[in-house]
Amino acid sequence: MFDPKDIIENIADNVRVTHNPFGLNKEGFNTWWKEVDVPATGDALLFTGLMYQLVPYIKAATGYLEKYEDKPMAKYLKYGKFIPKTVANMGLQKIASQDEKLKTATTLGNMVKILKASDVSFFYDHDLDEYSGVLLYDLGDQEGFENHARFVAKKLQSAGIKKLITVDPHTTYALKVLYPKITGISFEVQTWFEVADLAGKAEHGEITLHDPCFYGRYLEVSDAPRAALNKAGVNCTEINNNGSFTNCCGGPAESVSPKLADEVGLRRVAELQATGKPIVALCPICMVNLEKCGADVVDLSSVLVDAI
């Protein structure tokens, strides 16, 4: 395990300076929309919270963390925040996989296709799309999270945003539950699969859904992806630990202990694989960790998009 202090202070510094946990230049990693025909006007802002876009960097960084966990080199991690952000940015851009960046663009592009086919009035503005800061909340840096939340909420409020469509559970929880309490600014927040309305015939007939903890327990929206799947002609083969009693994928431990994340993730993968059906995830963090633990996982958007 890494010293959480080293990890947290690095992430907190990155969020403070660049508004994202990796210290990246947003223009360099939030590029998916350039290849997608996404509406520029509409009622609700598609607010990705940049989580899917960070997947290539999460994977790359985790690979390095795995190498150094519990090794003498781990103690040098605390000096990471002294590396100039431009240098760290260039390094991360170099090690992040191009295939993963394309996968991210495809996943978000599929969500756009589904929303359009569902006649949802929405738009995307890359300038308004920001990281929610939720990792700081999870890690216990409440001060850092609150400062960042105020920055994001005020930015959205100044742009006149009232409605948000979110794409991952962590951002959804932050915007729907935490922001109103902390910033006093509320938005009408719905996930993309709650507003999706596709009646068709998807390619997958039967799947097993991995409920993310934040959708299953904290937000209690586990029925919504099942309803969307059923409407698209897809049945869910259920496992015991689902919905509000879903089991964690292990992903949240990734930054402080990849070993621990693997240990928890392997147990969850065994539960999911027991049905023998394709495994479907609806959270980028779950996706990363379940895949790392050997599961063949697809995103919910890639299943539903077939029904168009």
Binding site: P4, C213, R217, F245, N247, G250, P252, A253, V256, L260
Partner: peptide, 27 residues
């Protein structure tokens, strides 16, 4: 350091028979 082993998954809080919030306490 042990505190950060907690995944903040919330399963303990969902299951607590006393209505305590172990996950929230760790946070």
């Amino acid at each position: 350091n042990e505190l950060w082993k907690c995944l903040h998954c919330g399963l303990c809080s969902e299951s607590c028979p006393r209505g305590a919030d172990p996950g929230g306490i760790l946070l």
